[in-house]
């Protein structure tokens, strides 16, 4: 395939992915909006005022960046894992495998599909947050870059999960037992400066902490960690997972017998 044909194939995959999550918006876009709105109500209006300030901001202002990032993480991951596993389950992945589309185009197409849903939900949640708090953007470049890279990273993670998955149970194990704990303990709801030194150290092994704090830095201008480190870690993870995903596709892991 020449470059133009590869571009057409890439756009085809992206359009198909976006069409898929838009077609089932009641399952893909609405639930995270409702869930995060409930978080805003409970933590922002009901409990938040009793907690007081955190890192110099009201509690609702503090948690909004984390909640936006949480929705981006879970939705970019969920989109790729469910879509790619769905194509495996229905065997429609064979449509792509018999075609001349290079593996890296397949991978990037699915990743951009995941990023699209992650960002779509992120925008919806951001707009909802405006009903509960004033939103400021301190560093636009950092904000946009970290949210995009985070969506890429978790789309890649979802892709790897989908490749290895053999059943629908397999695509819920990682989100339930890995993704959710990492997100909840990744500084979404609190500053790690509140933790004892030991648990601060443990928290720093959690990659989600870096993404959430870099995003919070972009919006509020405050962070528990060095933002440069956050970018180094996220980019390193993205490169490593991309290379591994491509390796799985080249090998045809659980795709070609």
């Amino acid at each position: 395939m020449n470059a133009q044909q590869q571009w057409v194939a890439f756009c085809t995959i992206v359009v198909k992915e976006i069409r898929r999550f838009m077609r089932i918006w009641q399952q893909t876009l609405l639930p995270p909006a409702i869930t995060i709105a409930l978080y805003f109500v409970i933590f922002g209006r009901l409990i938040g005022p009793r907690i007081g300030e955190m890192s110099g901001f009201s509690y609702i202002e503090f948690v909004v960046p984390g909640l936006i990032m949480m929705s981006v993480i879970t939705n970019s991951y969920a989109n790729v894992v469910s879509s790619f596993f769905g194509t495996k389950f229905q065997r429609s992945i064979e449509e792509l495998l018999v075609s001349p589309v290079p593996n890296y185009v397949i991978l990037v197409g699915y990743i951009i599909g995941g990023v699209a849903r992650g960002l779509a939900v992120g925008v919806i949640v951001t707009l909802l947050s405006l009903f509960f708090t004033h939103l400021q953007v301190s560093h636009m470049g950092v904000t946009v870059a970290i949210v995009f890279l985070t969506a890429v990273l978790f789309s890649l993670a979802g892709f790897i999960n989908a490749v290895y998955a053999s059943s629908f149970d397999d695509i819920s194990i990682i989100p339930t037992f890995v993704l959710t704990p990492l997100t909840y303990l990744g500084g979404v709801f609190y500053s790690i400066s509140m933790l004892p030194a030991f648990w601060q150290g443990v928290s720093q092994a959690n990659p989600v902490l870096y993404m959430v704090n870099a995003f919070r830095y972009g919006l509020l201008g405050v962070s528990d960690i060095d933002v440069v480190w956050a970018f180094v870690i996220v980019i390193a993870f993205c490169v490593a997972l991309f290379v591994y995903s491509l390796y799985l596709l080249e090998r045809g892991k659980k795709l070609r017998s």
Partner: peptide, 9 residues
Amino acid sequence: TQAGYYGLP
């Protein structure tokens, strides 16, 4: 979609 996979505009 299949046509797109083969690079057809």
